[in-house]
């Protein structure tokens, strides 16, 4: 506690300096202007594609078939889905053949080697998304834990086009993040990457090599 007391005492002893008014992020954001829903979808699409993710248009009924098709094409054999997740139920009716659904039921620490070595892909929903940076927002929970969007080499994301916000400020304000933050909120913009070797961009650094967005209701808008 001594370090704490000393540090705070030194900070409090410092001269006040020029008063600084509270920054007005809302005004800055308002001045930048908003986008209509069609523009948001279009910008999201373009920006996440620029970040090397794939976007596939689909609808609430046909996405399981679409996913199974892509999975087959990519050679996915084990697909991780959340325990009790509604999308898992929808997919279970459809999956079969070469595609095996693995449910995330045990704590990660209990099946780490299988998780890290054997799972080809995972499916999670996105809570919402951002147009200006082409980003997906995930609030992991028991039905879609944190490592699902990180460990498997391929990440399928189910996204409702109606949930695309203009930008992060709009999302956090509309969804009232500051009132109750989850354990871990994530904003994901494409597959993991690095340019640490001679500024050469390479995908699949430590996280997924591919991010595939199944966009529901984006085509009609």
């Amino acid at each position: 506690m001594n370090a704490r007391t000393n540090i705070l005492a030194r900070l409090r002893a410092a001269p006040a300096g020029v008063p600084v008014p509270a920054p007005d992020v809302a005004a800055w954001h308002a001045a930048a202007g908003d986008m209509d829903s069609a523009t948001r979808i279009e910008r999201f699409r373009a920006n996440i594609a620029a970040a090397h993710a794939e976007v596939h248009d689909t609808d609430i009924d046909s996405w399981p078939a679409l996913l199974c098709g892509i999975a087959a094409q990519k050679g996915v054999r084990k697909l991780l889905v959340g325990k009790d997740a509604p999308e898992a139920a929808a997919l279970a009716a459809r999956a079969g053949g070469d595609l095996q659904l693995v449910r995330y039921e045990k704590p990660a620490s209990e099946w780490r080697s299988e998780f890290f070595d054997d799972i080809d892909a995972a499916l999670t929903p996105a809570r919402s998304a951002l147009a200006d940076t082409g980003s997906l927002i995930l609030w992991p929970d028991a039905r879609a834990p944190r490592l699902m969007s990180l460990v498997p080499p391929l990440h399928f994301v189910l996204l409702d086009a109606a949930s695309i916000h203009t930008d992060l400020y709009a999302a956090m304000t509309a969804e009232r993040w500051a009132d109750a933050m989850p354990t871990n909120a994530l904003v994901i913009s494409g597959p993991s990457k690095t340019a640490d070797i001679q500024q050469t961009l390479a995908y699949g650094a430590h996280g997924p090599r591919e991010v595939i967005v199944l966009l529901i209701g984006g085509a009609q808008a």
């Binding site: 490592l147 994530l186 904003v187 913009s189 993991s192």
Partner: peptide, 19 residues
């Protein structure tokens, strides 16, 4: 334009969470 991951961490693992 943006990093791949923006990671907001607010608490340790909760009882019902798996990782």
């Amino acid at each position: 334009p943006v990093e791949t991951y923006q990671n907001f961490i607010s608490r340790p693992r909760q009882p019902d969470e798996l990782d």
